Simulated scan of single mutants.
Amino acid sequence: MEEKLLALIRLARNRRASDIHFIRRGNSLEISLRQPDGLVQLEQDIFEISLLEYLKYRMGLDLTRLHSPQSGSGSLAGTDCRFAFLPAQDMETGVLRLMQTDTSLHIQDLSSDTAVTEFFHKLAGRTKGLVLFVGPTGSGKTTTLHAILREASLVHDLKCVSLEDPIEIPDPSYLQIGIDEENGLTYERGIEELMRHDPDVICIQEVRTPSAAAKLFTAAFTGHFVLATIHAGNGRECLWRLRDLGIGEELIREQLDAVISQRLYPAAGCRGVSENRKEVCLHEIITKPEILHLLDKGVYPPGFRRLEDIVHQAASDGSVCREDALRDFPR
């Protein structure tokens, strides 16, 4: 059974998957991979229900409490993994997160657009302000933040502290703190603890509650440079999401400096399962002028290139597949 499990991990890695999803219904097991091009179900007859049972054991779940939600972690095929298990009345679901291990990525590797990489280089040298990153799972937000934090620490000698759930890219160049809600380390408590470390740069992955959002803005107001991720589709949606989390418009106007929205796609013609498959990361960046215009008018400024415009332009140029662009931004 170990051999089958390791084969599944290697398959997921080859397809650049960030997660493996399991759904057990009766005597059947569905397995899907969260790949750069979306959630793709495996058509297979090799992996059976016994594989899911073995995975629970390997991830350290309490096998006497399988009627309750649990999470566990472990290493498989040289990959650090985190497993979340959720039982329901007629089914079981599980998600295995595959942690990234490549700490060598640099900002210049994030995009072929020099304007984007130059903007990220400037972020790496900042010591004040608030910048948010948005995008779905698998869009490369964690990788982008890691590259910025690494450069801030190693190049600019800034003290960087990151609060993560879980820690996906372990890196000794800056301090990483993992959320542990069972032992009282929530995002809210974690932000308070980060402040006591006297950091130059604070990174929060990700902001989910009104209290965490409020502490995020407090950290920026007290003179730190704050980077964070938040659940939204683009810059405009991010501003509305902040309002939903109870952040007042005046505070957004004063404290928020930029929102980066991104998507990650296989390069056109590179949809195979090779480890060397190329990917294209596309970014929408709104800064203070666009933020103020969106708050005043509710729409992007005239002539501004929205994320969907950038994605469809990449499809027209042949950089990404048109079907990927249409999947995310139908026209």
Rank of each mutant, 00 (worst) to 15 (best):
G269R: 08
P301F: 03
D37T: 00
S112C: 12
Y57N: 06
D171N: 14
V155G: 00
T229M: 10
S153F: 00
L245E: 06
A77T: 07
L5E: 14
V155W: 03
D102T: 04
G140S: 07
L307V: 04
L33T: 11
E250R: 13
D62M: 06
L55R: 01
S162A: 11
R322W: 10
G184N: 00
G129L: 05
D157A: 13
S73D: 12
H21W: 10
L96H: 05
Q255L: 13
K159H: 14
H231Q: 15
P170A: 06
R189G: 02
A152F: 07
L66F: 05
E182G: 09
L264S: 01
L292N: 09
R305G: 01
L149C: 15
Q313Y: 02
E182V: 11
R327V: 05
S319D: 01
E48K: 15
V311M: 06
L98I: 07
K278R: 14
E290F: 04
S274C: 03
E237C: 08
E3V: 09
R150A: 11
L110D: 08
L39N: 11
D257Y: 02
V273H: 07
L216M: 15
Q89T: 12
I286V: 14
R277M: 07
E290A: 11
L245I: 10
I23E: 15
R327G: 10
R25G: 13
A232V: 00
H283D: 01
A77F: 11
D328F: 06
K159S: 08
Q35P: 08
Y265Q: 01
P87R: 04
L11C: 12
V299A: 08
A268Q: 09
M91H: 13
P302F: 07
N183C: 11
N234I: 00
R24V: 11
I202F: 08
I167R: 03
L216N: 02
T114Q: 04
L61Y: 04
L6N: 14
D309A: 12
P199R: 03
T127Q: 15
I9Y: 08
E290Q: 14
L292T: 02
F329V: 03
I107L: 08
V280H: 01
Q100D: 14
E290N: 05
S73V: 06
V40F: 12
G94R: 07
L145C: 03
R208D: 09
I247F: 11
L264Y: 02
R65H: 05
F119S: 08
D317W: 05
D328C: 06
L264G: 01
L29H: 04
R306Q: 14
E237A: 15
G233S: 14
L61W: 04
N234E: 04
N276S: 13
L61K: 05
Q35F: 11
V207Q: 01
R16F: 00
L194T: 03
L110T: 09
I179E: 03
S139H: 00
D62K: 13
S111V: 03
V320S: 00
D109F: 04
